[in-house]
Nucleic acid binder design. Structure first.
Lengths: 343, 343
DNA sequence: GTGAAAGCGCTAACAT
DNA sequence: ATGTTAGCGCTTTCAC
């Protein structure tokens, strides 16, 4: 059907191996032959068969990204897309292809990963979450396949991973609110089984402690990580005898719910309540008012993850590679936390 | 290194081809052998090498998705992620893998697609946009590779494509505003070179015409398809001697900008201006006020695109397949267009 | 510097 | 119902 290395060889009057050598820029090939062969390739429209190549080279030059199961974190769409963009961009630059996979449940996820890695279709995997117990991690680890976590594993702290320093980020966000004069700062969390929720909570608590401020359980809501949890949280907070005057919110999307809840209850942001959240997704600056948010460099997270994984795939074992990358974050202060609450 | 078909064959005391036949559920294989071979596979941890298989079968069981170049349409992230989810889900169900690719510019896009298709790494492609002139389409078409467009091509109306009836959708959205009593309806468009902008504009114009309403050029803004274009559009509209009382907005994200612009100018939605936009991305219901939006079934669009493509790849040419799929849309009416403007 | 030959792991005639 | 054989398109010793 399509043009093979043999066809080119025949037409060029050389052997297939020579053509192969031209392809891989073998050093001991004459300028002249190389030029001629390349010309003929062009002329015949030759394209190397990637499958054949990887069959013999035992390397696929591709990696896979495992998406978490949909329902659970659907609202993370924006986050994931940005991440994927970073991953794909860096992978392509390194000559790697990216395969996206997902499973309806954990079992299917393992099956998918197993098929891809055991079947030698990809060289490594990127995991986009960090659950407490993860069968996919167990699988990858036990088979010794290269993989990187975007996030971190509590159980195996030494895994190759790319992450935000969520404790510090939450600390900084909380301190920012405190610096505006707030003394009653609340926290709207996500699902407790995600490491990120715990880390951000920890940073929040630490900032309060360091500032000698009180941390009250009633100012903390561990909502589901869902879109309307912010709204529900609001009704709760605003009915408190002593309600918080500022909120650290675990995710921008939840903030949208909070904003709406506050609006309906007749409160104004930032005059009545200041808020800051995490991720700095693209619509934060378009909301009313624009949301303060901790930019965690999502694209960079993805880019670095891909880089780290590919490095580890290519790694020959002679040098030792870092296994933990922290992507810097920075506060994007916008109107939602611009003014301090009048005492 | 890893277990091959030969290893299994040896251990089972059969020939490699028998093992291969067991793998593919060949009819003429004894119950007994099949059982035994499968048992040994399990025991030895055998996994078929996908590359080897596709080298001989000349089919990769995978498709690729071409992402548009980033900068241009970054805000479409939410849209794309949902689409990709639909694609990946359906592809995986059909036993196909999905490869994501992108290029920094059109030339790189063609190179990527060429490498993947010509290199026989994927069996077909899904294109997530429809530009007027598209070298990727030209490439795919001229090589006769299976591909599907999410959107449509003006130049080649017969291409396999999955789309929203954008004319009708815009018609419906506009009619909805009119039915609320609005007589001055404006339109905030996207970049004019996208077919989708043109189609929506057409539906908008048609609805006005059918209702005997005036369409004024000053009520139409062809902004860049960027996040803050909505905001800029607002300052323009509101300074008009006769300003529109309702707006059809080409995308939800643009609506966020509009909302913010109106808020800053002291106008209320929907009391002063009613708005409705397109796509119904997940945050529309969380905005303040919740946004009316035309749900175009993004996930379904992706799911159907994948299905159509795989069908066309597997197609034996005996029957004739439809080449155009229209995914139904529906209006999601929320507060932003709930009340008619007082005359 | 280049060619010949073997083989990557699998499938698919063609035998039996 | 199963074994034998010949590739798929490429890379890679080993010769010369």
């Amino acid at each position: 059907m399509s043009v093979t290395i043999k066809d080119v060889a025949k037409k060029a009057g050389v052997s297939p191996s020579t053509v192969s050598r031209v392809l891989s820029n073998h050093p001991r090939i004459s300028r002249e032959t190389s030029r001629k062969v390349k010309e003929i390739m062009e002329e015949m429209g030759y394209h190397p068969n990637i499958m054949a190549k990887s069959l013999v080279s035992k390397t696929t030059e591709s990696i896979c990204v495992i998406l978490p199961k949909p329902a659970e974190e659907l609202f993370l769409n924006l986050f994931f897309m940005e991440l994927i963009r970073g991953i794909v961009t860096q992978a392509n630059r390194s000559g790697y292809d990216v395969l996206i996979s997902s499973g309806g449940n954990e079992k299917e996820e393992v099956e998918a990963v197993s098929r891809l890695l055991n079947g030698r279709r990809v060289d490594g995997a990127i995991l986009l979450y960090s659950r407490q117990e993860d069968p996919v991690v167990e699988f990858l680890k036990s088979h010794n396949y290269p993989f990187v976590l975007v996030g971190r594993s509590d159980k195996y702290p030494d895994l190759l991973s790319v992450d935000t320093d969520n404790v510090q980020a939450a600390y900084d966000a909380t301190k920012h609110l405190i610096s505006l004069g707030h003394e009653r700062v609340g926290f709207v969390s996500g699902p407790p089984n995600l490491v990120v929720s715990q880390d951000r909570m920890k940073g929040y608590a630490q900032a309060l402690a360091d500032s000698g401020l009180e941390m009250r359980n009633e100012w903390i809501v561990e909502g589901e990580f869902l879109q309307d949890s912010g709204y529900r949280a609001m009704s709760f907070f605003m009915n408190l005898p002593e309600r918080p005057t500022a909120l650290v919110i675990v995710d921008d999307i939840v903030s949208f719910g909070v904003l709406r809840g506050l609006h309906e209850l007749g409160y104004k942001v930032p005059e009545d309540v200041s808020i800051i959240s995490f991720n700095n997704i693209s619509i934060t600056e378009l909301s009313t008012p624009p949301l303060s948010s901790v930019d965690i460099g999502i694209y960079n997270l993805g880019y670095t993850a891909s880089q780290a994984l590919i490095q580890s795939i290519r790694h020959d074992g002679e040098t030792v590679l870092p296994n933990r990358y922290i992507i810097p974050h920075r506060l994007m202060i916008r109107e939602s936390s611009m003014y301090s609450r009048p005492k």
